[in-house]
Amino acid sequence: MKQMAVVHELYSDKEDQQTGPAVTPCMPLAMACAGERVRIVSLAGGRGMRQHLSSMGLNVGSEIEVIRRGHPGPFLVASGDTRLAIGAGMAHKIMVSPV
């Protein structure tokens, strides 16, 4: 948990530098730790991909819980009662903020 906190700070720093005053600290889903609840801030990827994610319940604003971290391997997240496995590559493209 300690390590994670540092990472969050790091990230919020970066956000600050790049986009001015960021409201929420955000990080890729790949950095969230097991058991953490996070809210999706943005989804990368093509439009088709984003819509696909949306329809599976992964939306900007939706809350998900990380059940198992990947690294290596896919992440296991819960979105409502649905369990989704998300590849590590994808997990780096979904930006989340802890809630």
Binding site: G45, M49, L76, A85, I86, M90
Partner: peptide
């Protein structure tokens, strides 16, 4: 190529 996303049914 597509990222891996798969629903895990109960």
């Amino acid at each position: 190529s597509e990222p891996f996303i798969l629903e895990m049914p109960p």
